[in-house]
Amino acid sequence: MSVGTIHGVGLGPGDPDLMSLRAHRLLSNARHVAYFRKAGRTGQARAIIDGLLPPDVIEFAMEYPVTTEIPLSDPRYNQLLSGFYADCAGHLRGLANRGEDVVVLSEGDPFFYGSFMHLYTRLKDEVPIQVVPAITGMSAAWTATGIPITWGDDVLTVLMGTMSAKDLTERMKTTDALVVMKIGRNIDKIRAALVAAGKYDDAWLIEYASMPGQTVQRLSEAAGRITPYFSIIVVHGQGRRP
């Protein structure tokens, strides 16, 4: 029996129209599809492709054992997630070894801060894996502002809001253009870092980029708001141009 292939499929930022033709083709012919989600939720990846799957597809929902319930610094966080990814990889490995192809959904691009990467590293030397790249959420976010993110020799830096206030501030100071992800409960720390770096007045907050409910506004105009999970902050570069 031939071994099946695991397809890590990037779905793009959220609008199904921004999905690649290859991704659409794989989804339309999928026999097995796997996706991550928070327990009790549909999952954003699954919601994006609603209506695109064959009626007889077999779904495998991979539910995170922890998201924000305990801090990243807690040793249990990595322990729980490591075991979770190992179990998920084992299930997918079993399907592939039985000759089944599996489509694993990934929001944005699979190799850009995606959970699929943790499956990829556990499976890449054992079963065939193909990765379908996609438009990232940050690309949709800066496009939504209607302003180019970089010019000429501008340096673009992508930061995670989970970083320390000191590290955020130092890196913000040394870049021309900026993207900040994983905002959520880190918003106050990010605001303070932007102020300290002298970039607060130039920052934009984009929520649900390319998805229903998209909002685009200056970060300074969103003071006091609770930002949803699908939020990105951008600061545009102002570099060399003709």
Rank of each mutant, 00 (worst) to 15 (best):
S2T: 14
T5G: 03
I6D: 07
V9E: 08
G10C: 06
L11P: 05
P13I: 00
P13F: 02
P16F: 05
M19F: 03
L21H: 13
L21D: 12
R22T: 10
R25N: 09
L27Q: 08
S28M: 09
Y35Q: 10
G43W: 09
Q44V: 14
A45L: 06
D50L: 08
P54Y: 09
P55N: 00
D56C: 03
E59T: 13
E63D: 14
E63H: 04
Y64E: 04
T67S: 14
I70D: 14
S73I: 08
D74T: 10
Q79D: 15
Q79R: 15
L80Q: 13
L80I: 06
L81A: 06
L81N: 02
D87K: 12
C88N: 05
R98D: 14
V103P: 11
S106A: 15
D109P: 06
D109M: 03
D109V: 02
F112S: 00
S115G: 08
F116H: 09
M117Y: 13
L119K: 07
L123C: 03
L123P: 08
K124H: 14
V127C: 09
P128W: 11
Q130K: 10
V131K: 05
V132W: 04
I135Y: 04
G137S: 13
M138G: 00
A140V: 05
A140S: 13
A144W: 02
T145I: 03
T145A: 04
G146K: 05
P148G: 07
I149M: 12
T150C: 14
G152M: 11
T157K: 12
L159P: 09
L159C: 05
M160L: 12
S164C: 05
D167C: 01
D167S: 12
D167G: 00
L168D: 04
T169L: 01
T169W: 00
T169S: 07
E170V: 05
M172C: 12
M172T: 00
T175E: 00
A177Y: 02
G184V: 13
N186K: 08
D188K: 12
D188R: 11
I190L: 09
A193F: 01
V195P: 01
K199H: 11
D201V: 09
A203S: 10
W204H: 10
W204Q: 07
W204P: 11
L205Y: 04
L205C: 12
A209D: 02
M211G: 00
M211C: 11
T215K: 14
T215D: 04
L219Y: 07
E221M: 11
A222D: 10
F230S: 00
I232G: 04
I233F: 00
H236Y: 07
G237E: 05
G239W: 02
